[in-house]
Design a protein around this nucleic acid. Sequence first.
DNA 1: GTAGCATTCAAACGCGCGTTTTACCTACGA
DNA 2: TCGTAGGTAAAACGCGCGTTTGAATGCTAC
Lengths: 206, 206
Amino acid sequence: MNSQHFSTKERILGAAEQLFARLGFAGASLRQVTAAANVNLAAVNYHFGSKENLINEVFRRRLDELNTHRLQALEEALSHPESDLEELLGAFINPALDLSLDRDGGGAFVRVLARAYAEHNDALRKFLSDNYGHVMKRFHAAFAQRLPDLDKEELYWRLDIVAGALTYAMADFGVIKRKSGVTEQQHRERSAEHLIRFAAAGLRAP
Amino acid sequence: MNSQHFSTKERILGAAEQLFARLGFAGASLRQVTAAANVNLAAVNYHFGSKENLINEVFRRRLDELNTHRLQALEEALSHPESDLEELLGAFINPALDLSLDRDGGGAFVRVLARAYAEHNDALRKFLSDNYGHVMKRFHAAFAQRLPDLDKEELYWRLDIVAGALTYAMADFGVIKRKSGVTEQQHRERSAEHLIRFAAAGLRAP
DNA sequence: GTAGCATTCAAACGCGCGTTTTACCTACGA
DNA sequence: TCGTAGGTAAAACGCGCGTTTGAATGCTAC
């Protein structure tokens, strides 16, 4: 993994993603990261300035793509007028699922994201809110249109629950063990199906 | 806080809970913990043996009580035959809510618990499964009785989603900001109400 | 070929970590 | 009154941390 035909920066980002997912931001050291990336220790500070900044770049690399895909999927769903709640939920959930299934680190990244949630880091929250808040607003508007009887604030609460359950499901927090013969991909796909069904009913609750 | 009329052990546990919630297990140092607890640095290793063991004791102290309360609430709900899905969900969710509202550290503990989920620590998972797996089995049986048409495995998935969303909600992961004039208690209480409504509908989904 | 720049490298910096050691205090039963 | 055990105290242990330094190397343009 992280073989030589990737650049030093890319190898560091990939190794950092893996190790942050496994050990946490405080738990993974730059010595472990650079060893896994097969680069010199000083390369992190040379290319990224600091560990803090490396963490930010790990997020930026994936989140830009994720949210672009989410908005594309939403527009696609909205473009044909017969789209139902499940399709809108799919536009939100499936890009995250796809990311988690992406070879080379997507699965690790969703765990990193879950850790970031748990860290409750204010700086990161602001970063997420500033950079990706408009995505949630866009989805909120779309859901509000499909659920005209639902109070706007109530909808915010419910979307927040959906986002939480999604994070939880993608990061494989749950107690449900993957059965032998079921790949990680299949496990996550089923997880997403269950989640969409569950969330659609939850959003429609009176 | 952690004033002198608590024992050294209790002050360490309280301070550790607070700091683990805020900084994580790797992020909070024993020097910070002992300073906050106003005890000597060596007291942790004297009373608990190691940092690792201190972490375990932080969990044990709260989880025994939580699961006892959950099972009591479940029996109470089942005792009157008219109990509906919302009551069963309340038996699962409200003890966690009460714990999170407990003065002296319950609020911190639910965040510690959320961190533990995110850590994906195998030893901890086994500990939780061994010690508290029977609680989930008991709830599963109760829900299965109320939802006879729902496939058993489907129910496991959905309860897992509920547990995830609950963890997320109690730990205040969400992006929903607490409005000024709303206490943390009120915020969490509303969170629980929304969650019960949402989850009940989700569980009833066809 | 060589100057100039970007990158890599080994080594070291000071610091804070978990843990251990050793001495000291205090209370209580013999 | 003294010995002893339980608890607390300060100091130090070795280690791994993030970061910095300065020299060595590779690459590109002239």
